[in-house]
């Protein structure tokens, strides 16, 4: 467990004892992350804000009955997801009756981009296209995995599925990604790798180290 997680757990325990400042800190620490996660399910910003509002009000009201979660982030993601789904279902009921979770979309967006070079853009285009075709829950698992770096146990907890199902779901998603990528025949893609090969100890994802790496994409066909 990182010291980062430790301190968030300390905040969580302090908040549970009724400390308003700790509660405020939790809100500010997770506000951006929760908005970003919520935005993948809906573009209705008001709805996301309502869900975050409900989530935090409930958190404070029920603070005496809260257990020790897998992690603070896990607890908040899971609760936000439940609240959002309930709201989205009530909304959609005005049009059609849908009980199926798959009917709730999940979409990552690449609208306003950090500057990528031509090859990176091509690889990104491909990834975009592949992801777009995947079922919503497969897209969500890729997000929780590659964006948030969560473990299978954590993902299973958030999505309320069995750990084995989480493995299977991600496997299916990755298979589709790999198949589509193998169709690409660009000779070389130059990727500006971010923190990977630098010796940095930072976990900030907005930072950049400049390491130029050559990646022959054509060879992906061998593994498909």
């Amino acid at each position: 467990m990182s010291s980062h997680q430790d301190s968030h757990n300390i905040l969580w325990n302090t908040f549970k004892k009724g400390d308003w400042e700790a509660y405020t800190s939790l809100y500010h620490l997770y506000y951006r992350l929760l908005n970003n996660y919520g935005y993948k399910f809906t573009r209705d910003v008001n709805l996301i804000e309502d869900a975050i509002h409900d989530l935090f009000v409930r958190l404070w009201t029920n603070r005496n009955n809260l257990g020790e979660p897998l992690s603070v982030k896990n607890y908040l993601y899971k609760s936000l997801r439940n609240i959002l789904f309930r709201k989205l279902r009530t909304q959609s009921r005005f049009f059609t009756i849908q009980e199926d979770e798959e009917s709730i979309p999940f979409e990552v967006s690449y609208d306003n981009q950090l500057i990528l070079n031509e090859e990176e853009q091509m690889l990104q285009e491909t990834i975009k296209k592949v992801l777009h075709k995947l079922p919503a829950r497969q897209q969500e698992i890729i997000y929780l995995r590659f964006y948030d770096g969560l473990s299978y146990e954590e993902i299973a907890d958030i999505m309320a599925i069995h750990v084995n199902s989480a493995y299977k779901l991600l496997y299916k998603a990755l298979e589709s990604v790999q198949q589509s990528l193998s169709l690409l025949s660009i000779a070389t893609v130059e990727i500006i790798m971010r923190t990977v090969f630098s010796s940095s100890t930072s976990s900030e994802r907005y930072t950049q180290a400049h390491v130029l790496i050559q990646i022959p994409i054509s060879s992906l066909a061998d593994q498909a």
């Binding site: 951006r32 935005y39 967006s109 306003n112 981009q113 950090l114 990176e120």
Partner: peptide, 8 residues
């Protein structure tokens, strides 16, 4: 991971 994020 190089996707846009919504922070509101």
């Amino acid at each position: 991971r190089n996707q846009s994020s919504f922070t509101n």
